[in-house]
Amino acid sequence: MAMSNRNVSKKFKWSIDLSNRNKSTCDLASPPGYLPSIATTVAESTKENDSSLLIKRSWDVALQPLKQVPMNLFMMYMVGSSISIFPIMMVGMMFVRPIRALFSMNQTFKMLEGTQAIGQILVYILGQLVALGLALYKCQSMGLLPTHSSDWLAFIDPQQRIEYSGGGQTLL
């Protein structure tokens, strides 16, 4: 408590409140070239810009997964396709991230507002799917996907014997 009080006192010591001063200087003539009307329009336009900013930010969110693709590609290239702890960790991260993102989609969509929300949602999902696809491709190139016949060999049952036969050298 003592500390914060000291802070406050310090603050008071050094702070200058300019807000009151503005009011006192408002009846002064505007400097040459200054048009208060323009200022108001600018203010209005910034108000309009707010929504576009929102859209822009929403697009940022929506495009974020796609933006990571080149980075992921670079990482994939750097890590190589050997089966060792780092590539496996990376592949795991590549899987976990988009899947987690897809599961927490609703929270992300709350951030996406505005008229283009549906498009953004679609782009976001697409981006995550691309990231998943990349992860799958990485798995494939590392040979982790059971796409070959040999991967299913252990599950093949032995062929059933139809004919039964036997015999040998004559015992006569």
């Binding site: 040979g143 070959h148 016949s149 040999s150 991967d151 060999l153 252990a154 093949i156 032995p158 062929q159 014997r161 004919e163 036969s165």
Partner: peptide, 19 residues
Amino acid sequence: SQGRVLADRSVLYKYLNPN
């Protein structure tokens, strides 16, 4: 095992004729 796994990860199936 019903076959042998080759290097290209395909399977060479064994000829298992019980007769």
